Every structure is written in structure tokens, then in C-alpha cells.
Amino acid sequence: MRLTVYLAGEIHSAWREELKKKSLALRLPVDFVGPMEDHERSDSIGEEILGKQPNALAKDMTASSFNNLRTGVLIHKADLVIAFFGEQYKQWNTAMDASSAIAAGKPLIIVRPEKLHHPLKELSRKSSATVETVDQALKALSYIFE
């Protein structure tokens, strides 16, 4: 059995690479997908597809349409979603992706430090599991294959 795992979360730190590397070392039969990690491309995709927009608001609106399309398809195709909530960056997109996974009935592992317990308590209660570290998420993922 091979699983597709959507990795939701901020794109600025190396948490995805850490998880992928450790998963590979364990030889887990997993394919990872996630949001567009090239921030510049993510912000400009609307103009790449539809052409120059008249202002920053229109540019953001067109980009978000195509980013939502991409994310929706990948979450729908995923067998599992791992949503990483770090401390350094705003996490609006991560919360949206986690909520989309819940609404789609996808199993969801939330990764968040203990200090973010309170603001994420409702999402945590709706998730399949909540852990505090990437290593714990990897252990949960590994457990599926035992």
C-alpha cells in the first residue's frame, strides 16, 4: 500500500524536507504533495495564467483562485494530511488547509507546539491526531504501515 500525504503549513522553514528525509530513511511507501513552495510563483500565478492585473488586490484574488484550485485537487487526492503549525509565521493558510481536510473527511495530523494548544483547540479536536513535533508525526505515519 502506498499513501499520498499532503503537507500543509508554512513554506519558509525546512520542516517538509526533514519529514521527507526521515520518511525516506524509514522506507515508508509515501508520496508527498503540498502547496506551491515557490512563494514568488504562488503570488504571480494568476498573472501568469490571466495576464497583468490592474492592481495588487486583483493580482492576489487571481493568484488565490489558482492556488485554491491546486490545493483543493491535491487535498482531495491525498490519503492523509499533515498540517504543521510553527511559531514563527502566521498560519492562516495552514488552518484553511486543515479545515478543508476535515470537511473532506481526510485523516488529519496536526503538528503544533504546546504553546499553540489554545488557539488550535477546535482544530485539534476535529483532527485524527495532534502531536507536538515532526518526529511524532512521522511516528504516527509509520504506525499506519505496521
Rank of each mutant, 00 (worst) to 15 (best):
A83G: 05
A78L: 09
L141N: 07
A83S: 10
R70N: 09
M61E: 14
S42N: 10
D43L: 15
K121P: 00
I82R: 05
Y89A: 04
V111S: 02
A63T: 07
W15V: 07
H76R: 14
N67W: 00
I110S: 00
G51D: 12
A129D: 09
L120A: 04
L57H: 10
S128T: 15
A137Y: 01
S124A: 15
D79H: 13
P113D: 10
A63W: 01
N68H: 11
M1T: 08
A58S: 15
A104T: 04
Q53R: 13
Y89Q: 08
I109M: 06
S142I: 01
A83K: 01
Y89W: 14
I49F: 15
F85D: 00
T4S: 12
D31E: 15
T4F: 03
A101V: 04
P107W: 01
A98P: 05
L138Q: 03
L3T: 07
T130M: 06
F84L: 01
L3W: 12
E114Q: 13
N55Q: 09
L28N: 08
A103P: 00
E17H: 09
K106D: 10
A83P: 03
E37C: 00
G9L: 06
P119F: 02
Q91D: 15
H117K: 14
F145R: 11
S127R: 04
N55E: 09
M96A: 10
T94P: 02
L116W: 11
R112E: 03
I110F: 02
A129Q: 10
I82K: 00
A25H: 09
H76Y: 12
R41N: 02
T130N: 03
S142D: 04
A83L: 09
G72S: 13
A137F: 01
K52Q: 14
S124F: 00
F66G: 03
E87P: 02
L123I: 08
S13D: 14
K59G: 03
A14N: 07
K22Y: 06
R16N: 08
V131G: 15
Y143Q: 12
V30N: 05
D97Y: 05
T94N: 05
E132Y: 07
